[in-house]
Design a protein around this nucleic acid. Structure first.
Lengths: 180, 180
DNA sequence: TGATAATATATGACATGTCATGGATGTTAT
DNA sequence: ATAACATCCATGACATGTCATATATTATCA
């Protein structure tokens, strides 16, 4: 619009709102991939937030409830080794669920430093929406991606996690590692 | 404190730290994919943070500088249409860069609501590290992924963004849309 | 023109994510 | 036993991300 192909030295008088595309294409395909992963994560998180709002849950909180439903009781430390959304010990995240009445705690039998967290009945009640949400996501993904594509992406992305702590969390969560 | 009626019926005598793997495998391959994307994004962001810390920049701040380097001057609104890391108008994000002296602003010629932001010399100086960081990421990705894998992932992930605002941002950033 | 809607920006509010620190408790090595 | 070390947890600090709201300015149109 504002740019003429034969007037490269002259700054546009009415610059387009998002500027001109850089001449060389500053983004390599690899940078594009990096931002693409960011974009999908962000967009997915917004969608998830919206769906979980009906249960007064954030995506991170829903991940905690989901994990507890499968493996309670867990300590903060154990939970931290399973969470993908956050590293370290999820003190505040779990506390927000205690505040909401979805999670309660017991003292640990043999380690007075640790607490054991488990779902309350109200917490378990949120599982209906969480599972419905997960199914909706499954439906969305399987409508857009062939099984073969999913396998390719899965194998490629696992390569990128090679050797990291979060890879261990993924493997613990999805069945390749029994425990720790 | 000890046992409530909603506590698990049988407390494991020696619970493993991360609990037992759920019998049915609660995560479908599609849920695994969802968490995998989250995991890669998180791990990448931590790595990026670490590398950019030498320039006192966060990943989001580096994205702003990168975009401005290619397309300055931009308004907040124009920048917001190009940013992947954040939706809406990045007031606070850009302000943090003004505070650090990496970005300055002019008044817009024809719209008194808008401001035009551009890089200061100090801001341009950070591009050396930003580009070095991007090259390091490119090297990492190309060492682990074949070109064909990158194409597959790219095409699959773009499908997931179909019709969203962030897809427009990706297209504007990476050359499929000239302007707006 | 005048009223209405749309846009650009700023900011409060809230919940993350990440790192660092510190206190309490448990484990290990001597 | 005990001193050194490691682990569990809580919390302060900082920068996001997201949404909602408020204000100023511009665009639209009856």
């Amino acid at each position: 619009m504002a740019d003429k192909d034969n007037a490269p030295m002259i700054a546009p008088l009415q610059p387009s709102e998002t500027g001109d595309r850089p001449p060389t294409g500053s983004g390599s395909p690899l940078q594009e991939l990096r931002y693409l992963i960011l974009a999908v994560q962000r967009e997915g998180n917004r969608w998830l937030s919206e769906m979980l709002r009906a249960a007064d849950l954030t995506p991170a909180q829903a991940e905690v409830i989901s994990i507890l439903a499968d493996r309670e009781p867990l300590t903060l430390s154990g939970l931290g080794k399973l969470l993908i959304c956050e590293t370290g010990s999820p003190s505040r995240l779990v506390n927000s669920l205690v505040q909401k009445g979805f999670v309660a705690q017991d003292s640990h039998q043999t380690d007075r430093r640790a607490k054991l967290f488990y779902l309350t009945p109200n917490g378990k009640a949120t599982l209906a929406l969480i599972h419905k949400t997960e199914e909706e996501i499954d439906g969305f993904l399987s409508a857009l991606l062939f099984d073969q594509e999913i396998k390719y992406i899965r194998s490629s992305l696992y390569k990128l996690l090679g050797g990291t702590a979060i890879e261990q969390a993924m493997l613990r969560r999805f069945g390749y590692i029994q425990n720790d």
